Amino acid sequence: MDAYKAATQRIENNPAAFTEKQMTALLTKVAGRDVVKANVGSYLDLKKRGFRYAGSVSPIWTNVTGTADHGDAVEIVVTRCYDQRAIKAVDKDGNAVDQATLGYRIPEFNLRQYQVVKADGEPQFRIFGLSGPAGDSCHG
């Protein structure tokens, strides 16, 4: 999961430096097809608009539940809370982009639930699903 977050932050911090093919290749190492497709779509939109994220995201807490062995793969559910107060969207000149221009709000905290799978023969776990539980509160 940390490899997934590192890959996404690398692209988010400078989507203009990546082609669609490069984004896809980087994310495919750490995520499944549907997650890659959704992420790349978001990053291409940022790139097209000349935006990127500046700052860093810090994990506050992590909870692992729902471990299941499917014989040919191990699946776990990971819930993680991120502190996002240090990030903002910026334009190509580094000027902050407001919520109306960006088209969405960047919450101070981001609660995410990940479906993480490691298939037999794979070197690491990959993210095959993610969702945001209702709200953006990280009380847990």
Rank of each mutant, 00 (worst) to 15 (best):
H139C: 12
A73P: 01
G121K: 15
Q115C: 03
E12P: 01
P107E: 06
S131V: 10
C138K: 01
V116Q: 01
Y4S: 07
V35W: 00
D83P: 04
N95V: 06
G41P: 03
A100R: 13
G132D: 07
K5S: 13
G32T: 09
A16W: 06
L111C: 09
D91W: 02
A73F: 05
R126N: 03
G132H: 08
A54Q: 06
R49T: 09
G132K: 09
G71I: 13
G71C: 14
V36Y: 02
C81L: 09
Q113K: 14
R52C: 01
T28P: 01
Y104R: 03
G32P: 04
Y104Q: 02
G135F: 06
L130E: 12
C138I: 11
Y114V: 08
R80I: 06
V97D: 00
R126W: 02
R112H: 11
Q9W: 10
A89H: 00
L27G: 00
F51P: 00
T62M: 14
D72P: 01
E108F: 09
I76N: 10
V78N: 08
M1T: 10
Q115L: 09
L102Q: 03
F51N: 00
K88Y: 01
A134N: 07
A119R: 15
D45K: 11
E108L: 13
L27H: 04
Q115E: 11
G50Y: 02
P107L: 07
Q99W: 02
V116M: 02
V64W: 13
A6F: 06
S42Y: 09
D2R: 15
G140L: 10
F109R: 15
D93W: 12
D69H: 15
L26W: 07
T62G: 06
I127M: 09
K21F: 07
H139T: 15
Q99P: 02
V78D: 05
R105S: 08
D91S: 07
A54D: 06
V97Q: 00
T8H: 02
A68N: 13
A16D: 13
A7M: 13
Y114W: 11
A38L: 13
M1F: 08
P59K: 14
L44V: 07
R105A: 08
M23N: 04
V78Y: 06
K92M: 05
M23G: 01
A31H: 04
A38Q: 14
Q84G: 09
T101E: 03
C81S: 08
A73S: 14
D83R: 05
A134G: 07
D72V: 11
D69Y: 10
K88P: 00
F18E: 05
M23L: 13
L27Y: 03
A100D: 14
D91Y: 02
M23H: 05
I60R: 14
L130N: 07
L46A: 03
F51H: 01
M23D: 02
P133I: 13
Q84K: 11
D45S: 10
K37L: 12
A54K: 04
Y4R: 06
T65H: 08
N110Q: 14
D2A: 15
V40T: 00
T79G: 08
A100M: 10
R112I: 10
R10M: 09
K21V: 09
L130M: 15
L46C: 01
L44H: 00
L44I: 12
Y82K: 06
Y43Q: 09
Q124V: 12
R10C: 09
A89W: 00
Y43S: 01
M1Q: 07
A96T: 12
G129A: 13
T65K: 11
V30G: 01
